[in-house]
Every structure is written in C-alpha cells, then in structure tokens.
Amino acid sequence: MNEPQAIAGVPLRWVGPLRIGGNVATAEVEVPLATYETPLWPSVGRGAKISMLVERGIVATLVDERMTRSVLVTAGDAQTAYLAALEVDARLDELREVVRACGRFTELIGFRHEVTGNLLFLRFEFSTGDASGHNMATLAADALLTRILETIPGISYGSISGNYCTDKKATAINGILGRGKNVVTEILVPREVVRDVLHTSARAIAELNVRKNLIGTLLAGGIRSANAHYANMLLGFYLATGQDAANIIEGSQGVTVAEDRDGDLYFSCTLPNLIVGTVGNGKGLDFVEENLRRLGCREAREPGENARRLAVVAAATVLCGELSLLAAQTNPGELMRAHVQLERKNATTKLGG
C-alpha cells in the first residue's frame, strides 16, 4: 500500500474539561475536536463547563456493543432460503468456533436473518475488543460464509456484504438492533445554571426539543433520529482520534430528550451506533496516538475497556454540543451572532487583520 502523500491539516483544539461518570468511566477530561466549524469549540466548551458545575456531571451508560456484517446468499426459492437460515441458527456453536479461529479478539455473539423472495440475508454480530471491528467482522463473515456454503445445500454465493449490516448508511435496523457502542448520556442541570450559563429556561429547551428535534425531524422523514447536530461533534471527535469518519452517518442517528423538572433541566442524548476503536487502521499517526493517550485510552486494561472509555467520552462530547446549541436556538439571533463573531474573527486573524 502506498504511503499518503500528505496529511490533511484540519484545525484541532482541546475543549473542556468535562466531567463524566457512569458504568464505564469516572473522569474529568479535555476532548479534542478537529473541525473547520470553529464555533463548535466554544459551543462544546459551554456544555463542558456546565458538566463541571453539576456534581455528577454527565452520566454515561453503555447499554450494548457489537459490530455487524451481513452476507447475502441466494436459493432457488423462499422455502429453501428459510430452511437454510434455520440450519445456520442450529449450527451457531460450530460457527462460533469458525470465528474464534479468525482472531483472539473476535467473538460471534448474535445472528439474525431475513428472507426476501429467494434471497437470504444473514446478519452476524461480533464483539471485537478495542477495535471498531470493520475488518475483523468482514474477515469473520467471509470465513462463516465459506463454511455455510460448504455445508448447507441449496444456496449459493450472493455477496460478502448484503447491506443488512448496515455500514455507513442511515437505516432503521441499526437503531433497533445496534451497531457499534450504544451509549446513553444524561445530565440534570439546576435552574440557576440553566439561567446563568445557558441564558434560557428548562421549559424553553424542552419545548424546542419537541417542536424542532421531534416534530421537525418527523416531518422531514428522519430515520430513528431526533437531534439537532450530533454529526458535528462526532466528526470533530472522529477526525481527532483516528476513526473512520464516514461512520458518523449511522453514528449521528440518535434521540435527544429534554424535560422541565420544576425548573431544573433533565437532558439526555442516546447514541445507539457509536463506532469507535482505540486500535486498528488510522491509529498509527503520531497526533492520534497522543490524543488517545491524553484521553486515557492507551492504558493497560482488559480488551475492550479502552474503546468503551473512548465511546462514552465521545457521547458526552455530543451532549455538551447538543445542549449548548439548543439553548442558543431558544434565543432569537443568538446562533447567528455567535457564528458571525467567531468565524469573522478567525478569518481576520488568518488575513493578518
């Protein structure tokens, strides 16, 4: 493979610190964001400030984790395809051994199928340690497909990828069944902090969330998604930590919940498809290694723990930016004023003015 001729220089800044708790990590960390949208830094920074003003900070709960790959096989008719699916299900113990032979960190943890006409889609779910797992899942799926075609009659090769995974596409199945890390982040912001730092009220944010994120997205035809801009924070975080940036497509599918609790603000972001890893392709660059080290994701831990830590930090970063933006949008003109002030200032600085 040819070495890259150049490294794209996306501006990067560390933001925070932000406070995180939950079932994966308890920490106060700064986070790196690589972006051309420079107002993102102070916006996420405002959310991070709020997390430091709240005793528990952002509580991040990792609900599930799995990487998926679907394969496609064809049969003469639907009945043959269905019987083949039942046979695959009956042989899962055998197929788990096939996967274990592909690598010591790859494990088959689930299987689902769908028959459409004479087409059989087989969706395999894997645990992949500290890697995001794209290549590991494909390698395992290739081995599984080979074994299935050798031992189950009546079916033939269709494709190593059947788009039922689903990779880098906005689909319902990922939100329902999960692909990557499923993380729920929550924060309870006292009314005084909402008023003094966000310059708004819990009621205003809760109402806007329903009208904009829920109703607006419904009218637009969004797929299992109701949020303002998860993709902004995810892209900045992914570029800074060596992730496959195209995975923000499914990663940014998620739901924001906001409630007025007697003036205090309950705010939550659920991200069911966070695809991140701390080893593998993209992690060998010096700046990525340094960023992962500063995030505490280069420690000697059990397999998978560094990637889980990275996932909850990413999810907490998303909450910070989402909270700050929704607060700004409750106030007429605030969002545009911030963009004009910050982006023109940066442009003037670059021109030497």
Rank of each mutant, 00 (worst) to 15 (best):
T61A: 07
A60Y: 01
E3Q: 13
V44P: 00
N2I: 06
L92F: 05
V63Y: 00
P4I: 08
A8W: 03
L12S: 09
V24D: 04
R13S: 12
P42A: 03
G21V: 12
I50L: 09
W14C: 15
V59S: 09
G45R: 13
V10C: 15
P39S: 02
R46D: 08
A81C: 06
I50R: 02
S43A: 14
I50P: 10
I58W: 12
G47T: 05
P42Y: 10
V44S: 11
G22P: 15
A84P: 03
S70H: 06
W14F: 15
R56F: 01
L18H: 12
A78V: 03
L40F: 03
R91L: 01
R96I: 03
R69K: 02
M1Q: 01
V54N: 01
L83Y: 03
L18P: 10
V29S: 13
P32T: 12
K49F: 01
E55T: 11
L83H: 11
A48P: 05
E3C: 07
K49N: 11
V10G: 03
A60K: 03
T74C: 07
I7P: 06
G76H: 06
R96S: 09
T80H: 04
A48V: 06
D89S: 10
T38P: 00
E65P: 03
E65H: 11
V73C: 14
L83A: 14
V31P: 09
A27G: 07
V59P: 01
G9T: 09
D77N: 14
V15D: 12
Q5L: 15
V31F: 13
L53Q: 13
P11C: 08
M1L: 11
G21I: 12
I58M: 05
V63M: 14
P39N: 04
L92K: 15
N23L: 15
A60Q: 04
L95C: 08
P17G: 06
V10Y: 10
I58L: 06
W14P: 15
P11N: 05
D77E: 10
A48C: 13
A84Y: 04
E87H: 12
P39D: 08
A6C: 00
L33V: 00
D64L: 05
G16S: 08
S51V: 02
P4H: 03
N23Y: 14
A48Y: 07
